[in-house]
Amino acid sequence: MNALTKLLATIGRVTLGFLALVGRVAIFAGQSIGHIVRPPFYPRELLTAILNIGYFSLPVVGLTAIFTGAALALQIYSGGQRFSAEAVVPQIVAIGMVRELGPVLVGLMIAARVTSSIAAEIATMKVTEQIDALVTLSTHPMKYLTAPRVLAATLVVPLLVGIGDVIGIMGGFIVGTQQLGFATGPYLNNTWNFLETPDIVSSLIKGAAFGFIAAVMGCYHGMRSGRGAQGVGRATKTSVEAAAVLILAANFLLTSFFFAT
C-alpha cells in the first residue's frame, strides 16, 4: 500500500509539474503576443532579428531542402517501381515537400539554429545581469528581447518555408530530369498542376506556427536560465528539445486540421 501511495504521489507530482510548465509557457507566449501589439516598439531590434532568423538561415534551409527533395525523388521512383507508379515522382515530390517535409525540416532547422542562439544569448544576458540592467534602464526585457524575436520568426519562417519548398522541388526536379530520365517540361507541368492552393497555404501557416514556437521556446528558456555556464548550457539544450518536440506535435495537429477529412 505504501509503495502504491508513493507511486501515485510520484505520478501526481510529475503531472502537476507538467501542467504547471504548460501553464507557464502558455502565459509567456500570451505575454509575448501582448508585447508585440502594445507600444513601445523596437524596429531596429525587429530588423536585426529578421536578418538573423531569416536571411542568415537561408543557406542551411536551402541545403536541407535541396538534398531532401533530391532524396525524396529517388525514394519515390524506387518505391513506385514496385507497383509501376514511378511516373508520379513530380507530383509526390511536390506534395511531400510543400505539405510536410518543407515546413517540418525548415522548422527543425530553425529550432536547431535560431532557438539555440536565442536561448544562449538571452541566458548569457541573464547570467551577466544584462537583463537586470535593461530593467533599471526602464526597458521591459520581454518587449526589447522577446517581442522582436517572436514577431520576426513568425513573419520570416513562412518565407523560409516557401523558399525551402521551391528549392526542395528543384532538388527533385534535378534528380528527376538528370538521373531518372524525366522530361523537363512535363515534370514542371505535373508539379505545377498537381499543387493546390490549400497545400501552399497550409505550408505557410505551418511555417508561421513553427517560427512562433521556435522563438518562444528560445526566449522562455533563456529568460528562465539558471546561473553560470551550466545554466546557459541547460537552457540552450532544453529550448531546442522543447522546440523540436512542439514543432512535431504542432505539425500533427495542423495536418489533422487541414487534411484529415
Binding site: M125, T128, E129, Q130, D132, A133, T136
Partner: peptide, 11 residues
C-alpha cells in the same frame, strides 16, 4: 535611478 552593476552588465 542609475545603477553600476558588479560586472558592468554592458550590452
Amino acid at each position: 535611478f542609475g545603477m553600476l552593476f558588479q560586472g558592468g552588465a554592458l550590452f
